[in-house]
C-alpha cells in the first residue's frame, strides 16, 4: 500500500515550517495512523529536537571515482567527460576532487583503460528512530562543508518511503531552489507555510509558482497571525490556492518552540489547531488521487 505523501515547505526560513511539520506529524500519529516524518532540511535538520528519539544512523554514500590503474599517456577522456570540474590534469595525470563529484559515473563510462574505479564516500547521514507515540522520524543530515544536499535528501526520502506508513510528512528545505525541489517532487500535497509580512508574501508567491511548475496540489498555512498586516488570504483567493489554517502568534507559542516542546503538548489550543488542520487537509486529499489515509 502506498502512503499519502505531504511535503511541508516555505519560500523563506523561519516561518514555522518545522513547527507545522512536527506538530502535524505528532497529531496524526496520535489518531492511530502510521506516520513517518522525514526531515529533508538536511542543512539545518531540527525536527529531532522536538522528539525523544534514539535513532539508528546510517551514512549516506555516493560513488566517487578514484584512479587505481595506469592511464594511457596524455589521456584526458575522464577530465573531458566530467561536467563538474571534479577531474583535473594536475602534475601530468588525472586527479579526482571528490568534493565536486556528483557521482554520475560519466568518467568511468568513457575511461578507455579501466584505470578508474568507483568507491563509496560519505556525504551525510540518515537517522531512523521511533518516537514514544509510535511516529517514525527519519532525519537527513549533510556533513558540514559538504555541498551534496540533494543526494542526502534523496536518501532521506528513500528511507522514509521504505517505512510502512499511512502518511509520510516531509519537512523540506526553505527556499524554492533545487534542495526544496528534491524533497517535494512527486508528493501528493504541498503545505506552504508563510507569515503575514511583505517578505512572507513575496516568498509564498515563488513557492506557488514552483508548485505550478511541478504540477503539485498545494495549500497554505498562515503562521504568526498578528505579526504583520499583509492580507495572505486575499492573495490565496487571487492565486486559487486554498488557505487551510491560520495559526496565531503569542508568547506561549514562542516559549514552547524555544524550549523544543510541541504545541500540541505545551499550548492550550495547540491540539485543536492541528486537529483542524489535519481534518481540512483530509478534505483536500479526498478530492485527489491520493485519497484520505485510513
Amino acid at each position: 500500500m502506498t502512503p499519502v505523501t505531504v511535503a511541508v515547505a516555505s519560500g523563506k526560513g523561519g516561518t514555522g515550517k518545522t513547527l507545522v511539520a512536527t506538530n502535524l506529524a505528532a497529531h496524526v500519529a496520535r489518531t492511530g495512523l502510521r506516520v513517518t516524518l522525514a526531515d529533508c532540511d538536511v542543512e539545518a535538520p531540527n525536527a529531532h529536537l522536538f522528539f525523544d528519539v534514539r535513532a539508528a544512523v546510517a551514512p549516506v554514500e555516493m560513488p566517487v571515482p578514484e584512479i587505481v590503474g595506469a592511464c594511457p599517456a596524455r589521456c584526458t577522456a575522464c577530465r573531458d567527460a566530467c561536467r563538474f570540474g571534479a577531474i583535473r590534469i594536475l602534475g601530468g595525470r588525472p586527479v579526482v576532487l571528490p568534493d565536486l563529484c556528483h557521482g554520475c559515473g560519466a568518467c568511468t563510462q568513457v575511461c578507455p583503460s579501466g584505470a578508474l574505479h568507483e568507491r563509496q564516500v560519505a556525504v551525510g547521514s540518515v537517522g531512523v528512530g521511533r518516537a514514544p507515540d509510535g511516529m517514525r522520524l527519519v532525519t537527513g543530515q549533510l556533513h558540514v562543508g559538504q555541498s551534496k544536499a540533494p543526494a542526502v535528501i534523496r536518501a532521506t526520502r528513500e528511507h522514509a518511503l521504505s517505512e510502512v506508513s499511512d502518511v509520510v510528512l516531509l519537512d523540506a528545505a526553505p527556499g524554492a531552489a533545487c534542495t526544496a525541489v528534491a524533497a517535494v517532487h512527486g508528493t501528493d500535497f504541498l503545505l506552504l507555510v508563510t507569515e503575514p509580512t511583505p517578505f512572507g508574501l513575496h516568498d509564498l508567491t515563488a513557492m506557488v509558482d514552483l508548485a505550478g511548475e511541478l504540477r503539485l496540489r498545494a495549500g497554505v498555512v498562515l503562521n504568526r497571525v498578528g505579526t504583520g498586516e499583509v492580507d495572505i488570504g486575499a492573495y490565496c483567493r487571487t492565486a486559487g490556492v486554498p488557505l487551510l489554517a491560520s495559526l496565531p502568534f503569542d508568547r506561549d507559542v514562542a516559549a514552547c518552540y524555544a524550549d523544543g516542546r510541541l504545541l500540541i503538548d505545551g499550548h492550550p489550543a495547540g491540539d485543536r489547531w492541528f486537529a483542524d488542520l489535519w481534518s481540512t487537509l483530509c478534505d483536500h486529499l479526498a478530492t485527489s488521487s491520493a485519497g484520505v489515509p485510513a
Partner: peptide, 16 residues
C-alpha cells in the same frame, strides 16, 4: 564562464 568547477579549472591552468 563554466557552470561548475571554476576553481579546479583555474588550478589546472596554473599547473599547466
Amino acid at each position: 564562464a563554466v557552470a561548475q568547477g571554476a576553481g579546479t579549472g583555474a588550478v589546472e591552468l596554473l599547473a599547466e
